[in-house]
Every structure is written in structure tokens, then in C-alpha cells.
Amino acid sequence: MHSLPSTFQVVLHQLKKNRRAKVGLYIIILILIVAIGAPLLSPAHPENINLGASLQAPSFQHWLGTDKLGRDILSRIIYGSRVSLIVGVVAVGISGIIGIILGAIAGYFGKWADHFIMRLVDILLAFPSILLAITLVAVLGASLWNVMLAIGLVSWVGYARVVRGEFLSKRNQEFVLAAKTSGASYFRIIFRHMLPNSMAPIIVMATLGMAGAIITESSLSFLGLGVQPPTPSWGQMLSDGRTIMRQAWWVSTFPGLAIMITVLAFNLLGDGLRDAMDPKLRN
């Protein structure tokens, strides 16, 4: 007898057909390799200052040119990939944990808990998240950790809504009722039974969240609230080049391209995953 394919298999099958998602995935794998192998791949040390070689245009010696302090831009971009990925992962982790817990409570317990949490969500949705992130970092002080914390704290709303929706629809399904009848605790029902069955949309949100976090980090850096020098961060390299755009276009152009390619890759994958998981869009 043929058994029905699991959700995971269906999604994987849909994903294989989605060219955009595949391209996104390949680029992300490539960036991961670059980030891990940074010391082997970069031609120079990213923090090596050489004032004699300041603001050199792209050449054979410095493929992407040098910045004001004569640092090799390619090397800084290669090392900067680590910062961007870390910011993305940690920020997504923070917002995911907050959002999943609050969404699960709202969706599972319903009633006043749901009412209270959803009002909180409505309130936060009335503020542009970038504005809250700017205010938070301005209050906490600019550092790598505070940037990740701020981005995480302002972007959990999406996860909470998704998880709540999933839980509401699963609350009365047989597998949950069976777990309840067998005497499983709330904790066990939520984390062992319901959450694993709600992972698909969470993974989509997390993928798109990586993209959003990397963009937000660069916006904060642009305002001087990002990762502080000398740590090479793409956002900060980009804003460094802003004042000298006319003389040295390469200083901010290449880090910008690096951000664009990385974020596009996450968006392509997230978008493809969403399509793959949407039963309405299957053919």
C-alpha cells in the first residue's frame, strides 16, 4: 500500500521545482562557505591599516579597492559576512523565541491570554519597527549585542501571529485531544505535539527574518548606531563610504552589493519556501 507523503516530503518536492528558491539556497551555501573560510579566502587582514594605500581604485592588487585607511575592501567584505550572518541568526533567534512563546500561549490558552497578547501585538504594529529599533539602540548604546537585541525585540510580532494562527487551527485536532486525554502536560502538548506540526510557516518567517535583520543592521549602521569599528560590518563599511562617494564610489558600492546579494538570496529562499508550503498555490 502507498503511504501518503509527509508534509516535509511534499515541501521538498515543491522546493525542487522552484528555481528561484534553489538559486537562493545555493547563494546562501556559498556565503556560509565564505564566512567559515574567511581567513583562508581573504587576501589581507581586514583590520590591516595602510595609510600609504588609502582610497585606491579596484586593481589587480586590491580587487575591490581600498578604503580611507587603506584597508582591503574585499577582505573586509569577506570577514563582514560573519557579522551579517551572526546578526541575522541571533536576531532571528531572539524574535523567534519571544514570538513562538507568546503566540503559543495566545493560541493554546485563548481567552484573556489571547486577548492580552494580541492587543500587545496591535500596539507594536502601530510603530514602524525600524523606529523602535533606532530608539532602543540609542537608549542602550551602540554595540553588536545591542543591535542584535534591538532587532530581535522589535520583530517578534510576525512569529507570534503565525504561531497563534497555527495553534488556533490545531487546538481541537485529534492528535492534540489524544495527547490531552493521555494526560500530557501543557508544556509537552505545546512543545512536543503542536509546535513541531507548526514549524513550516515559522521556518519561512525565519528565512525572511534573516533578510530583514541584515537590512536593519545596515540601516542602524548608517545612522551610526550599528556595529562599532574596527569590526568589519557591511552596513558600517557602506556608511563609511557615503561622504566620499564622489571621489571613491567603490568604498560603498561593493559592501552594498554584498548586502544585496545576501539579502536577495534569503528572500528568494523564503519566498520559494512559502510558495512550496502553500497548498492553494500547488499545481
Binding site: 533578510a211 548608517f222 564622489r246 548586502i259 544585496m260
Partner: peptide, 25 residues
């Protein structure tokens, strides 16, 4: 479809201020 959607995603994949800087440039 691939081209159209990639183009649309490109807009959200660029830091806003960077696109602004490039347009000014």
C-alpha cells in the same frame, strides 16, 4: 515569472539608503 519576482525582491533586498546613494551618484 522568475525574472519578475526576482526583480521585485531586489527592491526589498537593498538597504534603502544605499539605493538612495546609488541613485544620487
Amino acid at each position: 515569472d522568475d525574472l519578475g519576482m526576482s526583480f521585485a525582491l531586489l527592491g526589498v533586498s537593498m538597504p534603502n539608503f544605499w539605493l538612495g546613494m546609488m541613485l544620487i551618484l
